[in-house]
Nucleic acid binder design. Structure first.
Lengths: 144, 144
DNA sequence: CTAGGTGCAAAAGGTTTGCGGTTAA
DNA sequence: TTAACCGCAAACCTTTTGCACCTAG
C-alpha cells in the first residue's frame, strides 16, 4: 500500500471515528488495517494475534474496544454464526455469510435478494444479517 | 393440553428422535415441552430454570444435550444474535428474527421474501437465518 | 446387555470489567 | 487540561467435558 493512499485511509478513519465520538488511536488504526489486510472473518482472538505482530504490547481488551468502536462507527460488521466466537468483517457492501457446518469456514456471498421486507407496525430495522448454513465447496466434495 | 394430544406429541417426538438416532428420554420430552409452552426464545439457562420447576434434578449439561438433540432432529432452531447466550426457538415455520438492540428482545417475524438465492458453484445450503437488528415497537416509541 | 444419556463438578472458551497510568483533542 | 483510551489481570458468563451411574431399546 502506498503512503498517499494510506494517509487517505487514515484521514477517512479518523473522520468516521470522530463522527461517532471516538478518538483516533494507533490501536484502532492498526486493528482496522489488520482486518483490511486479510478479509477472512477473523475472531477477536485472531485479530489479537495478527495485531500483535506489529504491535506486541496490544491487549485483548483493547482489541475488543477497537472492534466495538469500528462496529459502532459503521466500518466493520459483527458476525455471530454459532455458539463460538464472534467474527468480524470489514466488508460493508450488502452481502451475506455462508457458514460451513463441517469446517466452520465463513464465506462472503453476494446476495441477489430484493429485501423489501415489510415489518409489522412499530419495528424499526437498522440492518439485516442473512446467514446461510450448509456445506462449503471443499466439504461438499469430501465424503459425508 | 389434553392427554390424547400430549400422547400424540410424544409419539411424534419419539419418532423424530429415533429417526436421527437419538433416544427418547423424559428429559428431552420435558425440555421440548418447556420450549413449546412459552415461545419466547429462551436461552439455555432460561430453559434450565423453567425445566427445573417440574424436574428439579435436571442439570445444565442435560439441558444442552436435549437442546442439541432437538436442534439436530429438526424440531428446534438455534438462534445466535449477538455475543450473548444462544436462544432457542421451537417455531420451525419459515420465519426470521427481529433483535432489538435496545432491550435485547427477540421477535418472530413472518418473512415475505422469496428466497431464490443463487449460491456460487459448490455451496450446499441447508438452512437460512435472517436476523433483523433494530428497535422493537416499545423501544422505538421510547426516547433514544 | 450395552451404547447412549444423565447429573455433578470442574475446566475451557469467550468477553467484560476495574484500575492505575497514558494520550488525543 | 481532562475525558477517553490503554495494558494488565481478574472476574464473569456461557458452554463443554470427564466420569460414575443409569436406562431405553
Amino acid at each position: 500500500m502506498r503512503v498517499a493512499s494510506k494517509k487517505l485511509l487514515d484521514d477517512s478513519l479518523h473522520e468516521r471515528l470522530a463522527t461517532s465520538g471516538f478518538r483516533f488511536t494507533a490501536q484502532r488504526q492498526h486493528v482496522y488495517s489488520v482486518l483490511l489486510r486479510k478479509r477472512d472473518h477473523p475472531t477477536a482472538e485472531q485479530v489479537f494475534i495478527r495485531a500483535k505482530r506489529h504491535m506486541p504490547e496490544i491487549s485483548m481488551a483493547t482489541v475488543y474496544n477497537c472492534l466495538d468502536a469500528l462496529v459502532e462507527c459503521g466500518l466493520v460488521r459483527q458476525v455471530t454464526l454459532d455458539r463460538g466466537a464472534t467474527h468480524f468483517c470489514p466488508n460493508m457492501k450488502e452481502h451475506c455469510h455462508f457458514y460451513c457446518d463441517v469446517c466452520s469456514g465463513v464465506f462472503d456471498i453476494d446476495l441477489p435478494t430484493q429485501t423489501t421486507l415489510s415489518l409489522p407496525q412499530g419495528f424499526r430495522a437498522e440492518r439485516l444479517d442473512l446467514a446461510i448454513h450448509g456445506r462449503c465447496p471443499a466439504c461438499s466434495s469430501r465424503k459425508r
